[in-house]
Structures are given as C-alpha cells and as structure tokens.
Design a protein around this nucleic acid. Structure first.
Ligand code: FES
Ligand code: FES
Lengths: 139, 139
DNA sequence: AGATACTGTAACCAAAACAGTTGCAGAAAG
DNA sequence: CTTTCTGCAACTGTTTTGGTTACAGTATCT
C-alpha cells in the first residue's frame, strides 16, 4: 500500500504558515509540497472541517490558521485527517466462532491499544509551536 | 489500503497446529482460513524461512511446527512476515532541505519509535502457548 | 461590467500492497 | 506410474493515497 504522507505534509504546511504569518494560496503551498493545488485543497479541506484553518475564495483569498501554533497539537491534525483509529489492529474474521481465532485477535487488539495510547500521548504532548522552535533553532 | 491480515491468520494456524499436534496440508489450512492453498503456502513459506515451521512435499506431506508453542512469541511470527519496520513513520520528503519538514519528520519518527517499542514489548511477551491456553479455557 | 485570481468539487488515472486464482513443475509415497 | 503433496510464476481484483484535468462559484480590481 502507498503510505499516507498527509500528516507530515500538513505539519509542514501549518508550521510554515504559522512562521510566515500571512495567507497562502493553494498554488504556493503546492509548490512547497511538490504536488498539485487540488491535493492541497483536498487535504487542507479536512483541517478546515475541524476548525484548524479557514479559507477564503476569490482574488486575494487563500488559507490561514484560526489559532496560534501553540494551540494546535499534532494529535489535533491527525484526528482531523483520520476518520477511524490511528493504529487499527490487523484482525482476522475467517472463522468467527473459533476460540483460537478469537484469542489471537484479542492479543493483537490489546497490543495495538497499548501502542496506540503511546502514540496518542506523544502526539498530544507536541504542539506545532514546539516543531516551529526546533526548526528555527536548527537553521 | 487493504489491511494486512497475515499475522492474525498465522497465529491462528500455528496455535491450531500446536493444539492438534499433527501435520496439516495447505488444503486443510486454506479451508480453515476461508482462502486458497496458494495463499497459505505463500505465507507459511515466510515462516519456514525463519525456522518456525517446516514443510514436506509429496504424498503425506504438509506443514508442522519445529518447536513448541511455548517457544514461539507473537514477535517471532511478526518478524518472519515483515521485512521492514512494524510501524514505519509516515514521513514526507517533499523539501528535504527545509528545517520545518525535518523537524516535523523528527517528531513523527520519535513518536512512532515509542509506539513501536510498546508494540514490540507486548508481542515479545506473548507466546503462542499463552494464546492456546486462553482459547482452550474459553471453549 | 468584465477580467483576474482564488477556492470547491467531481471524475478520472497511476501506483503500491495484499488477496485470490490458475497452471504447471517437482517430490515422495502407495 | 498414479496419487497427493509443496513451490513458484504469472496473472487479476481490491483498496487507499496521490496526481491531474476540467469546470463552477466567488471576491477583488480596473
Ligand atoms: S517550505 Fe515553508 S517551511 Fe518548509
Ligand atoms: S480452525 Fe483450527 S483452531 Fe480455529
């Protein structure tokens, strides 16, 4: 499967917008992401639905943040992009009545829940401002 | 993406073989997994390369375990099936020289490493015998 | 009003990964 | 020498993300 690069791209874009302040058009963001304006609208559109960015049409329009970088965590962005679980356990449903399959699935589900909790904790603890400061300090 | 059900299926098959003891043919395993014998050979073949099972061709052939369920962990099976990382961080490489992209990627990579460590710990702590006992106790 | 510069969205194709299927070669036992 | 197995190559199907084209709607400027 082709891996999902949306979270990394959105972090990049949002921090960029936070640092440079102003409004950005899909066209400019697309160039910075080596991709197409439509892909940018598609992905930023998901963030808009969750109130992280807002857009304006027409001449002079574009995208901008609705709150400061310090008020956005990586988890906020991830949740806006993802519908279901972050780390779904890869279960089987070949033989639903078999106790062995159920026990195997239970083990996998438990392990994935632990890992997902760890991931969520790390995502929640990191604000975009933290990323911005790290980036600026390493220029 | 279509999710990867190989680990769950292999746990099921291996515990089944451990409990019922004997040799099993790809055909019988395929029926139990609601799939095709070729898929079974393909997947069990990966386990054979890692010494978890062995196969014999010809009449009366089939698959059997090389060690007891207590000597196989979920992690062993996972490592046999997967080449790379269990939980690869979904990084971006659109603008490799941009410090913001690098900082974003670093955050994601760190978070995923934590989650992967948690997952690996849980997988390593669980033997197939543990799954077998849970299943038997719940019949 | 009309040109210009934006977003919003639908409809497609490409790429990647797992699953499923067919077909056939080879090996071991009867 | 037939039967019953594995091993493997070569397809197709399916799902998900990414990329592209095309067009409708909207706000600003002259
Ligand atoms: S291109 Fe703007 S921050 Fe990386
Ligand atoms: S079918 Fe044999 S253990 Fe589930």
């Amino acid at each position: 499967m082709k891996s999902d690069g949306r979270l990394a791209r959105m972090l990049h874009v949002l921090v960029h917008m936070g640092l440079l302040g102003g409004r950005e058009t899909s066209e400019r963001i697309a160039q910075m992401l080596n991709t197409n304006p439509v892909v940018v609208r598609r992905t930023l559109g998901a963030l808009r639905k969750h109130g992280i960015v807002e857009s304006e049409g027409g001449r002079g329009g574009g995208w901008k943040l609705t709150r400061s970088l310090a008020q956005i965590t990586v988890l906020d962005v991830q949740k806006a992009l993802l519908e279901g679980q972050m780390l779904p356990a890869p279960l089987s449903s070949d033989h639903p009545n078999c106790p062995v399959e159920r026990a195997s699935n239970a083990v996998l589900e438990h392990a994935h829940k632990l890992a997902e909790a760890e991931l969520e904790k790390a995502y929640m603890a990191t604000t975009l401002e933290h990323i911005a400061k790290t980036a600026v300090s390493k220029v």
